[in-house]
């Protein structure tokens, strides 16, 4: 790499190099870097005290908490599902296995607004399952459960997608060895497979969490967007901005951005450690 790029004395200066790098930076400025930077620049424009006040407003704190809780629940559900589905599909061969894999992966391809709308159709008052709920006191739409359902739906294949290849790459001889040594299926899974999948599980969980904490399109359809009730952090940003409260929107936006950076670094970190 560096060998190729080094300019030796007497050699012609290769203009393509600085121009190429310059192009990347210039193109990214308005597209990626400046938008991100402005969140922090404007957030602190009126001083840290202002920023802090905007952050600790009850509705702001509530929205952050709600986002963290719903994303965590969705992450736990999807990691568990991904783990079980990957194990079953690695262990047994059955008809329709590839069809099932495609269906599991489908939710990422569906626009989030469509996903939210679909959930509304199912669980809403006149929906297929909603009608059944109508007779009870229990409601799903426009509650925390709806947000969790939406999160689960849009992040469904992420954990599975990371865990399945990791499991496929594990040699079956580990399981055979454990079995001949007297281990039950559960013991084999618990002591042999699970430790080897740790990295994939962590990466899958982080991806799922990152995706669900930022989810907007499906959440706004199913949550009802009620402040202090069903308003997640992204919805709070949108609502505050619409009200003209730019500082309020900005504070939460900065926090969400930081959370995303943190998760992103963690993913890079686990990848690196796994590669070792």
């Amino acid at each position: 790499m560096s060998q190729k790029a080094r300019i030796l004395p007497g050699q012609r200066i290769d203009l393509a190099r600085p121009v190429g790098i310059g192009f990347i930076v210039v193109a990214m400025m308005p597209l990626v870097i400046l938008p991100l930077a402005s969140i922090f620049i404007y957030g602190f424009a009126k001083g840290p005290v202002h920023f802090w006040q905007a952050l600790v407003a009850p509705a702001a704190i509530f929205s952050l908490k709600l986002s963290l809780i719903t994303s965590t629940v969705a992450t736990v559900c999807n990691v568990l599902f991904g783990l079980i589905a990957a194990y079953v599909m690695a262990k047994y061969n059955f008809k329709g296995e590839s069809a099932l894999t495609i269906i599991i992966s489908l939710p990422t391809a569906i626009p989030t607004a469509v996903a939210g709308f679909a959930l509304l159709l199912l669980w809403g008052r006149s929906g297929l399952l909603g009608q059944l709920l109508e007779k009870t006191d229990y409601q799903i739409m426009f509650t925390t459960s709806a947000i969790i359902l939406a999160n689960i739906f849009v992040t469904f294949p992420l954990a599975f997608g990371v865990i399945k290849p990791a499991l496929d790459n594990l040699e079956t001889s580990f399981e055979d060895a454990a079995e001949t040594m007297g281990a039950s299926r559960w013991q084999t899974f618990r002591f042999v497979l699970l430790p080897s999948l740790r990295g994939a599980i962590i990466t899958g969980a982080l991806l799922t969490f990152a995706r669900s904490i930022g989810e907007f399109g499906s959440t706004i359809m199913v949550s009802g967007n009620l402040a202090l009730k069903t308003q997640t952090a992204p919805l709070y940003i949108f609502a505050k901005f619409n009200e003209g409260d730019v500082e309020g929107a900005n504070a939460i936006a900065a926090v969400l951005a930081l959370i995303s950076f943190a998760i992103f670094s963690l993913i890079l970190f686990t990848r690196k450690r796994l590669e070792k």
Partner: peptide, 20 residues
């Protein structure tokens, strides 16, 4: 079942558990 037979198997690539 395999686990009830009490046999020792040495696999071609040994199948040592990588995380132990």
């Amino acid at each position: 079942r395999a686990r009830e037979r009490n046999v020792g198997v040495i696999f071609q690539h040994y199948a040592l558990f990588p995380r132990m």
